[in-house]
Amino acid sequence: MRSRRFRRAALNGGGVIVALVTLIPIFWMLSTAFKPSTEIYSLTPRLLPSHPTLGNFRAVIDGSVIGMPYWTFLRNSLVVTLASVAISSVIALLAAIAVARFRFRFRATYLIMLLIVQMLPQQALVIAIFLDFKGLNLLDSLVGLIVAYTAFALPVTIWMLRNFVATVPREVEEAAAIDGAGPVRVYWKILLPLVAPGLVATSVFAFIFAWNEFVFALTFLGTDTAKYTLPLYVQYFQQKGTVDWGATMAASTLFTIPVVAFFLIVQRRISSGLVAGAVKG
């Protein structure tokens, strides 16, 4: 009896240690973001700010640190992310219907192709895409980023949506077809509402990918600071001689919150599928 209680305590202790070690960096980010600079560079760092301040957030939002307000970069990130999520969701849904509802030649080939291209390293392809975009005048433009993010989100979103489409019973569609609805109407009125939850989940993954993406933004946006997306903006603080860590952590916090919120929304889906791994940075 005692050994069981001891084992329970040991397990819980292990759990607490794992959780705390994992949380330390995040805690430190938040704590620094709320500290005045005298406390940030103090010789004996305190865990919690003794005089919490919103000064860092204010400096980030009105742009006194790098000369441009946070809103500029938030707007860029939102434009790029929302546009690419919307476009890739539509394209992915069409492809998912094809691979989940039809048997045709090259079906397995297409699916395997998706698995393979999903693993192509972005930092390698970016060299060729940069040269292509240069010729097409898509550098230093948010449109170029939208195009790239849309295409790179597709392999994973198609793969995920395929499973959602496959779970919708075919009989529902067939019944509608017998009632005289054409295929377009069947997909629009019957299938779409039923795969909507799946569409939300895949959109969240596409959102996180585009929101976090760094390599393409770094390469395509060059020195046009006003076009920067949030990841570039957060990293930009470091390029300036002495780093203002309070402001960096405040900017980083503002950038991180939406992703964490989305992660919590899809938490259950994450634990049920290996595809989740595709969202890694």
């Binding site: 794992v18 959780a19 705390l20 994992t22 949380l23 960096p25 995040i26 430190w28 980010m29 620094t32 929101w211 976090n212 760094f214 990841p231 957060v234 990293q235 603080f237 470091q238 780093v243 860590w245 960096t248 952590m249 980083s252 950038f255 991180t256 992703v259 964490v260 989305f262 992660f263 919590l264 938490q267 994450i270 890694k280 940075g281």
Partner: peptide, 22 residues
């Protein structure tokens, strides 16, 4: 806790670790 570490974007996490090791 683990989900928070996972959800933190690569750029945020990297900048954060640079600061922790500053």
């Amino acid at each position: 806790a683990a989900l928070l570490a996972w959800a933190t974007p690569a750029v945020s996490a990297s900048v954060l670790f640079v600061w922790v090791f500053d």
